[in-house]
């Protein structure tokens, strides 16, 4: 505040140079004015910078809130819609089989008892950003539930409902249950020492994990009915991919036979 304010020196007579006066013996009013404008300019710049930094901080914080919370709300709401649609579709007496899946269509429910007794996510067709924003997405072209080959599904680890946040918790033998229009399919997570490991961390370019036989050639033969889950690894990073493999355990159970699902659904 006191930057260029002239002191209360009595000027005007010019008889004796005041000790507080300038080298010319007179307070230089012009230079005082200049230094005042300079101080004003500095203050404006300082205030502007401060406001800019505060604004940037607010926007970044809001983005974190968006990623970790708002996307969850949006995806969970969408999941509820999709699940309700599926249930309605499946319980309709006509049971009109949809001719072909289009990207974004939900077609199955994924149950993972290890991640919670009520863990259920609607799986949509396709793995683009728009599909994955709704829920776990099926790699187009890979096997469908229960089929020989590799039923491969990608899902978000952080944000968008974080469906695959904890798939690293899956252990050998854990059931992964897929519910479709007419059947239940029980997959079991493989062990660490098997030819197809239960869990692996690979580079993002490693497409062999979704090959018909996981870790085999992309157009190779299949050796069973596998299920593969892919997500990012480590959390909050895209450096690698966390992969979980499971294999079909036994024949499918029809929904008519077991409306409440197989025993595996209750963690057996």
């Amino acid at each position: 505040m006191t930057g260029g304010a002239p002191g209360p020196c009595d000027t005007g007579d010019g008889a004796t140079p005041s000790p507080v006066a300038g080298p010319e013996g007179r307070p230089d009013l012009a230079s005082a004015a200049v230094s005042r404008t300079r101080a004003d300019a500095l203050r404006t710049v300082g205030r502007g910078t401060g406001q800019l930094l505060l604004t940037i901080g607010y926007v970044l914080l809001l983005f974190v809130v968006y990623e970790l919370w708002v996307t969850d709300l949006q995806s969970n709401a969408r999941q509820d819609e999709l699940t309700a649609e599926l249930q309605e579709e499946w319980s309709a007496p006509s049971a009109a089989v949809p001719a072909e899946l289009r990207d974004g269509d939900a077609f199955a429910l994924l149950h993972i008892p290890r991640l919670g007794a009520d863990y259920a996510r609607a799986i949509v067709e396709g793995t683009g950003p728009e599909e994955l924003a709704q829920g776990p997405g099926h790699y187009t072209g890979t096997a469908m539930p229960g089929e020989l080959g590799n039923f491969a599904v990608a899902g978000h680890r952080v944000g968008r409902g974080s469906p695959f946040l904890e798939i690293d918790e899956l252990r050998q033998g854990d059931p992964v249950v897929v519910e479709t229009a007419d059947s239940w399919f029980v997959y079991r997570v493989l062990g660490p020492a098997e030819q197809v490991p239960g869990q692996q961390v690979v580079s993002p370019a490693d497409v062999s994990v979704i090959a018909p036989t996981p870790n085999g050639p992309a157009d190779g033969p299949t050796t069973g009915a596998y299920l593969t889950l892919t997500t990012c690894h480590p959390e909050y990073s895209a450096r690698q991919r966390l992969i979980v493999h499971a294999v079909l355990d036994g024949p499918p159970l029809s929904r008519a036979e077991a409306p409440d699902g197989p025993p595996a659904l209750r963690g057996v």
Partner: peptide
């Protein structure tokens, strides 16, 4: 955002 990449080869 980096952690939006959850698929292989994409």
């Amino acid at each position: 955002v980096p952690f939006a990449d959850v698929t292989v080869d994409q």
